[in-house]
Amino acid sequence: MEKTICNSSHSKEEIQPLRYLSRAEALAIDKELLEEFRFGHQQLIEIWGHACAMAVTKVFPRRSLQRKQPTLLVVCGCEQNGAVGLACARHLRVFEYEPTIFYPKRSSNPLFRDFTTQCEKMDIPFLSYLPAETQLISDAYNLVIDALLGVEATPGELLEPFSTILATLKQIRIPLVSLDVPSGWDVETGTSDGISPDVLVSLAAPKQCATRFVGKHHLVAGRFLPYDVQKKFELNFPEYPGTDDVVSL
């Protein structure tokens, strides 16, 4: 499945297909950014975290939330996607939302630990456990951000506590926002055993599994990518509006 869109770098008559990346292609873009363009790992996470926070504010402006308090829950894994979730939570706090973080298995990576410290210093609360009764989550938060798994994860090989967390997320009835790859999905084929998010925020470019996304909002955070990278991988992004760093598909 391919989605066709107009790219501002081409004439209006020329239609280019939006590229959906395989796992290998997604990792190749990361490698290109880190090794050829000398982006820092922490820098990329910061860019993505900010873009994800912007996506949340666009889809869920504070004035539109059902609850008086703009509360939301960010569920973070121990790999890169979890670090993006931490950065996202911090930016949402700056935007005057009230995030709470569930981060059950903290990474030993010092770069990721920095994001944890930043959240703690900004007085963002961390849950000690995730309620198994999802009604408790619905009663406390307006939405949940899924930053549990990412490109690195293999759904069939999930260990605890992630398999239990995934089972809880699948029962969530308030809006669910997934970062890059919905947890429980295979990066390329997708899966019927994963969660069903209302919003998907693809990092850099959509992954092949995104062709199976049926939620209400799919946004891409790839504006920061150098033109040479966009051209090399034939990403064919739609035009980003104004100065926005995310675009809706």
Rank of each mutant, 00 (worst) to 15 (best):
E36R: 14
P99M: 06
Q208I: 02
L136D: 09
E152N: 14
S64K: 15
V177Y: 01
D193T: 13
Q69R: 11
T164K: 13
L203F: 05
V56M: 03
E188I: 06
F162C: 00
Q80S: 12
H217G: 03
E98F: 03
P61S: 09
L136H: 12
L34W: 11
V181N: 02
Y20T: 01
R19Y: 06
E25V: 08
L169R: 03
L86T: 04
D198L: 06
L235V: 05
P238C: 01
L149R: 07
K170D: 11
P110F: 06
R23T: 11
Q208W: 01
Y97L: 00
I145W: 00
G190V: 10
L34P: 07
K58N: 15
S22L: 09
P131A: 08
P17H: 06
R63M: 11
T116V: 14
S108I: 06
A205I: 00
R173P: 02
L33M: 13
A87P: 03
G40N: 11
E133S: 10
S183D: 07
W185F: 13
E98S: 07
I47K: 09
F237A: 03
P99C: 05
E2H: 13
V59W: 06
A53K: 11
R113S: 12
L166V: 09
S178T: 00
I165T: 04
P99R: 02
G40P: 10
E2V: 09
Q43V: 09
W185A: 08
V199W: 04
P104S: 07
K68N: 14
P161R: 11
R23I: 08
L73K: 00
M54E: 15
Q135V: 09
Q80F: 12
T100W: 02
K231P: 07
Q208D: 03
I29R: 08
L249A: 04
S107T: 10
Q135N: 14
T71C: 05
